[in-house]
Amino acid sequence: MNWEGMYTLYYKELKRFGKVALQTIMAPIVTALLYLLVFSHVLEQHVRIYDNVSYTAFLIPGLMMMSIIQNAFANSSSSLIQSKVSGNIVFVLLTPLSYFEFYLAFLLASITRGLAVGLGIFLVAMLFVSLPLHNVVWLLLFSIVSSAVLGSLGIIAGIWAEKFDHMAGFQNFIIMPLSFLSGVFYSIHSLPEFWQSVSKFNPFFYMIDGFRFGFFGVSDVNPVFSFIVVILIWLMLGWFTLAILKSGYKLRD
């Protein structure tokens, strides 16, 4: 293993999003808080999903996880598409980094950004609402593995996309609908039966539901099942990402 090379790529990715933290960290936190303010103001008195959990409190884990996964995706995908379009990806491809080291560095950077955004939302939200912490280990496991899933998906999208328009399509037609329709703002039990069944095909639902269990100790489905689903998706996507990196697809033509 070229540990220093891999660490350098990870460090470079951290510095890259750190230099534009207003856009990569602060903006998602503000967006999540705006959702929180608007939805809690409108629905706080009308909706109660779990006993002893206010709607505003219910909303926070969902908003955190939605931001974690969207930013984990954005980190790897935007870095790769920018590097490809500007041509500076060549400086990584010329190095003795293996495809596995390349994957790990981008993955860890995505997880780091996802966690940074999630933690930021949590800290600011705590100013408004007191949240219970039922099980921190579940919180960490779901946030890390979910970031890994979206970080991998971001690498795939970044490699596949040839222009920013492709990336916007991926983001707006796949990531956004799946994350909005995953139970961030509602419990799937409040949906008609058909849409409950449809929701269970949405992998983001398991990420959010399991993450919410870490706060409240209640969830729509068993968190162990959710975790197995998320882990399996990561293993599948991870394997696929490594396979395309190894093949050199769109990178080493």
């Binding site: 540990w3 090379g5 660490y7 350098t8 460090y11 470079k12 400086f91």
Partner: peptide, 10 residues
């Protein structure tokens, strides 16, 4: 510095 680091010589 980053380029040197990729080669393990940071």
């Amino acid at each position: 510095q980053i380029q040197a680091g990729y080669f393990g010589k940071g």
